[in-house]
Design a binder for these strands. Structure first.
Length: 346
DNA sequence: TAGATTTGACCTTT
DNA sequence: AAAGGTCAAATCTA
């Protein structure tokens, strides 16, 4: 393990915790709602735990020229060469890429890894970036003995923020409704905490922010357009009918205090916070959603698309070090969003 | 035109 | 050597 690189991670975590503490002080002073404070406290706790774990993993390695990377910057930055060799710029770049690749491979092995098993029963979890983080697909591979290909995703902010978080989405053979989502590495990319913290219920639809605060689900005449709009949203949509709410037993899902029913639009809008979910039964890694009727597209959706959906809409609830960012995710439910499971699970 | 996805090639791990 | 994981050019999409 590279001590210098981990020191960077450690400092980043401590910096986050410091910022969150400052924010919390502000919240306390402003006497705002206790939900924000609770989320912030959980974030701080999570970051501090992660920082401690990182510190524990750091070994006091003697500095060795062959051991150290060219620099401790995020991988996107070019190396600062202090070597006066006549090597061309492009060959330096190739060498750096090679070095970076090897370092990444070494580091990848040390990254925390956990798997969530997600079941989708006729439910249409929206596409997009709905687990609170934006993912970019970088590969898909046929896996020996598996009927379905495995999708590979990495954090969109990898290049800009050096975030090493990745995830793999594997659909199970014996139960096509179940997906194994393997996460590797926590997100180190900082996102706007305020935007993340503010649930849509509180955030009026007037928000212009594309990042975290899209308007509530709206009906459009064009289903494809509707889909695209949702894909742009980073919120987590769970489409179902209005009477569907009753089918969410309290022991299965606990909705946060931000949940509310919009009687005018006959739809439920709510927030699911792992803060609350963690305290209830989760059927050993299974997150089951069973809307009664759902229809998104008239034509059938291939397996890969369902995998995409799941990849976008899973919550790493069982992370050994639950990322505080997930506490800011929320779910919106709308009866106007119909779903026909037969289109997906034929 | 920028960002996302696809996919064959290449690299690493076992 | 085979399988898994990642890269990056080509392609797609908004």
């Amino acid at each position: 393990m590279n001590g210098a690189v981990d020191l960077g991670s450690l400092l980043r975590l401590l910096f986050q915790a410091e910022q969150q503490t400052r924010q919390l002080i502000g919240e306390v002073n402003a006497a705002e709602n206790h939900y924000h404070r609770e989320v912030l406290l959980q974030q701080i706790l999570s970051n501090l735990k992660e920082a401690i774990a990182t510190a524990k993993l750091m070994e006091p390695e003697p500095p060795s020229a062959s051991h150290l990377p060219p620099q401790v910057q995020p991988s996107s930055s070019p190396p600062v060469s202090n070597c006066s060799s006549p090597r061309s710029e492009s060959s330096e770049r190739v060498l750096f890429k090679e070095h970076e690749r090897r370092e990444m491979c070494k580091k990848r092995k040390t990254l925390p890894k956990w798997t969530n098993r997600v079941r989708v029963v006729g439910g249409r979890l929206a596409e997009g970036l709905e687990d609170g983080h934006s993912w970019r697909k970088y590969g898909q591979k046929e896996i020996l003995g598996a009927m379905h290909p495995r999708g590979y995703y990495r954090c969109t902010h990898r290049n800009t923020a050096g975030c090493l978080a990745t995830k793999q989405v594997q659909r199970l053979d014996d139960d096509p409704c179940v997906f194994d989502i393997t996460y590797r590495g926590d997100h180190t990319c900082l996102q706007n905490p305020q935007a993340l913290l503010t649930p849509a219920v509180e955030e009026p639809a007037t928000s212009q922010s594309h990042d975290r605060s899209p308007p509530l689900l709206q009906e459009t005449e064009d289903p494809l357009h509707e889909q695209q709009s949702q894909a742009l949203s980073s919120d987590f949509f769970l489409p179902c009918s209005s009477n569907q709410m009753a089918s969410f037993p309290p022991q299965s899902l606990a909705f946060s205090s931000m949940a509310a029913v919009d009687h005018n639009n006959d739809c439920y809008t709510g927030s699911i916070s792992p803060l609350f979910i963690s305290a209830v039964t989760w059927d050993s890694n299974h997150f089951s959603v069973t809307p009664s009727h759902v229809a998104v597209r008239p034509n059938a959706t291939p397996d890969s698309e369902l995998a995409e959906i799941v990849s976008a809409a899973t919550l790493p609830i069982n992370s050994p070090r639950m990322n505080a960012n997930f506490m800011q995710d929320h779910v919106e439910l709308s009866p106007s969003f119909n779903f026909d499971p037969s289109n997906f699970l034929g």
